[in-house]
Nucleic acid binder design. Structure first.
Ligand SMILES: [Mn+2]
Ligand SMILES: [Mn+2]
Ligand SMILES: [Zn+2]
Ligand SMILES: [Zn+2]
Lengths: 142, 142
DNA sequence: TTGCTAATGCAATTGTGTTGCGTTTGAACC
DNA sequence: GGTTCAAACGCAACACAATTGCATTAGCAA
């Protein structure tokens, strides 16, 4: 019984991880979030569940590591998290847009990132193209 | 006597503030920096002067409040400061390389950054192309 | 030179995120 | 259904950039 969010739990297991209540709850929350959420936002929104603060930090770490979420430090130097586009190619192959207002990160799937030539002796492990500005939602009210 | 940086001290007084050694030193340092500096960077660069850490924090706060500097939180959520002067080098027109070993940031002057097309309603204020990897010096010992 | 108060130095504190470690639990297997 | 065990958790302690409180110093206008 208890038809618990089969989609999300299934996606978690598909990554080889355990579908715990904390992971399901955080992912569901981020899926419907209008803006990038801080750890504190999430703690407040899910306080009825009684998750430990460290558990929430670890869920968020795991989401970032496994490519499910983006993490960015906002202007007050607190991390904000937003869901990554599920069907996008690897994040280092496309550009990202970060809204200065709401903190949300958008995958710009159709803006490719090409690896530029480097000076002699240099080697690259990652390339990142990020644009900052106002997103479609926040630009309306500017 | 002691012709100490007349330009900077004068600019400080023109803002109605006192031209203290800490302010002059921090402003001079930021004027010649080719990247945004953290409080720690500044503390190290000016350690011969013996300024208190808090004094440096307060100088930087004052610079931001009075419009002399920009403050941004970097990916590791530490504040970085750069001069807001209109004649500042245009770091947003070229790519940057950050070495994973030594942490140094290199301006890749010949790798241009072009502003990509954005989704409807989006507007961009900055574009950043950053490559991470091993620099010429650190790559030799890899 | 003096007087006023902005600015400083130092200690304590805050806010956000991390680490260590013993305990619980998801899910694979029977 | 029960058994097993590493992944995940809860809690306490920790790390560290940044801020605040307060007594003292010093920039500069008069
Ligand atoms: Mn992406
Ligand atoms: Mn540059
Ligand atoms: Zn936005
Ligand atoms: Zn290096």
């Amino acid at each position: 019984m208890n038809a618990v969010t089969p989609n999300i739990a299934e996606r978690i297991r598909a990554l080889g991880a355990r579908a715990t209540p904390a992971r399901v709850a955080v992912m569901r929350l981020l899926e419907t979030a209008e803006r990038a959420l801080s750890h504190h936002d999430i703690e407040l929104a899910l306080q009825a569940n009684g998750f430990d603060r460290v558990t929430l930090y670890r869920v968020l770490d795991w989401m970032v590591e496994s490519g499910l979420a983006h993490r960015v430090a906002d202007a007050q130097r607190v991390f904000r998290f937003s869901l990554a586009a599920p069907d996008a190619p690897a994040h280092d192959r496309h550009a990202h847009f970060r809204c200065e207002d709401c903190g949300k990160v958008f995958c710009l799937d159709d803006v490719p990132v090409t690896r530029p030539a480097l000076p002699k002796g240099f080697s690259s492990s990652a390339v990142e193209l990020s644009i900052t500005g106002h997103c479609g939602h926040c630009g309306k009210h500017a």
